[in-house]
Amino acid sequence: MQIKCENIKYIYNPKDPNSYYALDDISLEIEKGDFVAIVGKTGSGKSTLIQTFNGLILPTSGYSQVEYFYITSDKKLFKSKIKNLSKQEQIDNKKQYMLRKKVGMVFQFPEYQLFAETVLKDVMFGPRNFKVPEEEAKELSKKALSEVGISEEYYEKSPFELSGGEKRRVAIAGILASNPDILILDEPTAGLDPDGKKDLIKLIKEIHESGKTVILVTHDMDVVMECASKVVVLNDAKLMKICTPEELFNGDDFETFALEIPTFYKFKKMLIEKGYKKDISSINDFDSLMGVLGEKHE
């Protein structure tokens, strides 16, 4: 197991009369190399959950664990957890940037974080902060840029001259350049056109195949269907279920989570509800379904 949450709770605005639970008693485990999608409606706690993985948010109680890093605001718990670690690991635990190097986080509309004069400098910003030697940082950045499909002629351009899609890819390269073991993306496809979306999904799949753990927060169920091996469903700050995409889409409880299901599954479900004469419940791809639907005429 690479990431673990144990009974984490997070109270938003604890001192305010309008305080509420943004996370309510969530426990889960993510294995190395997993491709996990976290889904749920707006305000269900998705973004809060992923931010505990790189220490931007510390759980009010319980803890998140990323390899040997422990993330909690419960000091007693923290001490008892790191007690058994090696000296070096204990020191690492107290330095935030060590964790943030390990866990790359791509926020929604990441193009808004660009600031440097040139594309290359912006991408190198992360590795430099993480104390990667200058030459290596440059190498890593160039590699990351080529991975996201930004060619060399862009290196010295200002990031603000690029198109929307290019900006987003540069921003993602800025995270990849630190070579994180875990990549978390929050709504990476928001606002892109279908073409841009396809390219980005392909890129994320490639990143996953290169051996990284990928965690994806998204509203887009087509992306979930296409990429994820495991889905975590949150609703009103609570963990609803952990399952495979097929299980989620074939199940009958997704409406209660206010999720939008891929048209294919919606269609299949309608056919079943309206009493289609053949059994199609185990069919999970378009072509086979069409095969069955067309059969009677052949």
């Binding site: 269609f267 056919l271 069409m290 095969g291 639907l293 067309g294 009677k296």
Partner: peptide, 23 residues
């Protein structure tokens, strides 16, 4: 479905109507 010689009328525009037709 056309390749399988099942013709669906042009007026059908959404999956609700489509599933009605097929069932």
């Amino acid at each position: 479905l056309k390749t399988k010689t099942l013709q669906i009328p042009d007026e059908i525009k959404n999956i609700d109507e489509l599933s009605d037709f097929l069932c």
